[in-house]
Design a binder for these strands. Sequence first.
DNA 1: TGTACATCAGTGAACGCGCGTTCACTGATGTAC
DNA 2: TGTACATCAGTGAACGCGCGTTCACTGATGTAC
Lengths: 232, 232
Amino acid sequence: MQETAGAIRTRARAALRRAILDAALDQLATTGADGLSVRQVARQVGLASSAIYRYVPSRDALLTELILAGYDQLGEAAEQAEAGCDRGDLRGRFAATARAVRSWGAAHPHHYALLYGSPVPGYAAPEETAGPASRVPLVLSGILRDAAVAGAPPPPRPGPEPDSGILEPEVLTTVLAGVAPRAATEAVLVWASLFGVVSFELFGHFVGSVADADRFFEAALGSLMDRLALPG
Amino acid sequence: MQETAGAIRTRARAALRRAILDAALDQLATTGADGLSVRQVARQVGLASSAIYRYVPSRDALLTELILAGYDQLGEAAEQAEAGCDRGDLRGRFAATARAVRSWGAAHPHHYALLYGSPVPGYAAPEETAGPASRVPLVLSGILRDAAVAGAPPPPRPGPEPDSGILEPEVLTTVLAGVAPRAATEAVLVWASLFGVVSFELFGHFVGSVADADRFFEAALGSLMDRLALPG
DNA sequence: TGTACATCAGTGAACGCGCGTTCACTGATGTAC
DNA sequence: TGTACATCAGTGAACGCGCGTTCACTGATGTAC
């Protein structure tokens, strides 16, 4: 079946768009987000700098794409790692997810920093990033929900629930549905702690105090899972 | 007593140096570290851009000074907050320290990001920053050591200590002397978790999940202190 | 008291650079009649 | 089959900008004799 000229052009366009994004990823990996420049990207793909604007409206848009790609890569890695675990092994699932986050960060430190480091000054993350950004949290909350179903339902204490109002109601009724507010708050803390540990390691704050980063991370994992009361 | 001319000059030099640093701090606060420029600093103090080099050898050195100043400001805030507490109130001391960290970060988000956000690309933190950077950890470890003295000494379990080798030996024998390796590892995790929570809040990762940041932080504090087994 | 000299903060022009973005254009390819 | 037209990827020059750093210099102030 003969391919139409239009289809060929469309495909070429898409391929070049990918090449541009790959070049940008490449530069992010070596130079960091600040060093990312439209002109260098153009040089790398072998185009005039002005040609980039046929594919990407601005440098900021390019940054946005890198952020989206980062959250998606990281989310993908976490999801795959978790999916490879026995469903009943809640601790294994959590550990696999956390290790995937750490590994991805170690493999792409500048990219990780773009997502979880200093906000880029003068750049406001558009709403489109919210979805991909929540992939890792979604994996984690899935584990918690399974734990809430499997374990004894938390006994509703009398009186007003002390932790209500801390988290967004929408979160408590959707991603963390079935998880008691107290445990849900703890879960958000664990989430932040996990990234806190990974960031501290990648950003060099453990130099001088942690001697064996691998073992430290495993110990941290155990502690975090205990706080979530994951059985095992 | 007549002041010598030399003394006057020296004082003037010091004052101008301070003015330059203040201008740099100012720009850091508004523009962020990337926006910091020698020429803008010069404009703000009313000097030719070349004159700055009589006071600061390079832009990188200026950055280093800002980092040092940041760690010192933050450390100072933490130390003062902790010093205002009843010595026996271990939980109060921890909470005061942690709240000081969060407050300082909220008041100086760009400065906080310079210290705890993405490493500045192409810039390696010189060793001089190690001292000031450890002021907050020192406050926290001081509380833990007091707790170790006050509480029952951890029973040395038979067999090899399972957590030895994770932290630098030097840390275990100095700042965390008297704290069992297991608890010390936990302490480092708590330290990273604290900054993880503060960073997540300041960098916007709680948008959409945490509704009441103040209450969340207090809840987090309680949980972290429980993990340190602080009595109260 | 006066003069020659040294010190040193500060100047302003310049070097050489890279950047994001715009715009009128070329030239190849495909389409309509 | 041939011709006029439309589409569109890509070009290259240009605009206007700000940057870090250097360097020969001015001019005021203090010092030595």
